[in-house]
């Protein structure tokens, strides 16, 4: 799974049936470097059923296991937001705290 910040959303009316009524968010992967949360390289699109808003930090699972997330059985996705992150402790510090 990756840690990522929600930076936007994707709107598409013409899509595979499995994507009907599914929210698509643009997420920017983040990494932890010297006790700080810094932006990484990848920007991808993921399904989100948890209601992540812009600026939220989320955990995204990728690959075929993404379809095991609730509600994704018939959706040909390879990236799903599976958690809204409240806090991250790393390298002996609180690297991120929501709010």
């Amino acid at each position: 799974m990756i840690i990522a910040k929600v930076i936007g959303k994707v709107v598409a009316t013409m899509k595979e049936p499995g994507f009907q009524s599914k929210k698509l968010v643009v997420v920017h992967a983040h990494i932890i470097k010297e006790g700080r949360l810094v932006p990484g390289q990848t920007v991808i699109v993921a399904n989100d059923d948890l209601g992540a808003g812009e600026g939220d930090l989320v955990a995204v699972t990728q690959g075929s296991s993404a379809r095991l997330a609730p509600g994704m059985k018939n959706c040909p996705t390879d990236a799903v937001v599976i958690a809204l992150i409240d806090r991250i402790d790393a390298e002996g510090k609180v690297v991120f705290h929501k709010g």
Partner: peptide, 13 residues
């Protein structure tokens, strides 16, 4: 790889 949607627009919220 497969195309799963035609994007109308992607925008920051």
């Amino acid at each position: 790889l497969a195309i799963v949607a035609l994007v109308d627009r992607s925008l920051s919220q």
